[in-house]
Amino acid sequence: MTKTNGDFNPFDPTGMFKGMRDANMDAWSKMMIDLVNTDAYAEATGAALNAWLTTSGPFRKVLEDSMAKTLEQLNLPSRDDVTRLAERLTNIEMRLDDLDAKLDESLRPSHSGEN
């Protein structure tokens, strides 16, 4: 992209930026890695996450409840309905897989040989 001859060139602003960046990148990187590995950072992140979950929780609940009521009024399935249905489908899939396993077992050459 840019010629880097190590000399200052006022007519090449990207070269100046790149030189500055390369000179400082390792130091920034080390500083940030050290920062995120402190207990203070861990505590601040945990506290921020808790605060967000606590404050957004009531709003989310109101939204979910009103959405569920709206869907019910419109005779449409809610998220919970779809979730329950998906869980039942997975159980059916497991039963089918069990049958597939029994079929495979009965078709195995050694099994056929015994019969």
């Binding site: 207990d39 950072y41 861990a42 505590e43 992140t45 945990g46 506290a47 996450l49 808790n50 979950l53």
Partner: peptide
């Protein structure tokens, strides 16, 4: 490990 070991980090709540 450091973040998850901090008492302020609560995976149950999350």
């Amino acid at each position: 490990t450091r973040w998850s070991s901090n008492p302020a980090f609560n995976p149950d709540t999350i």
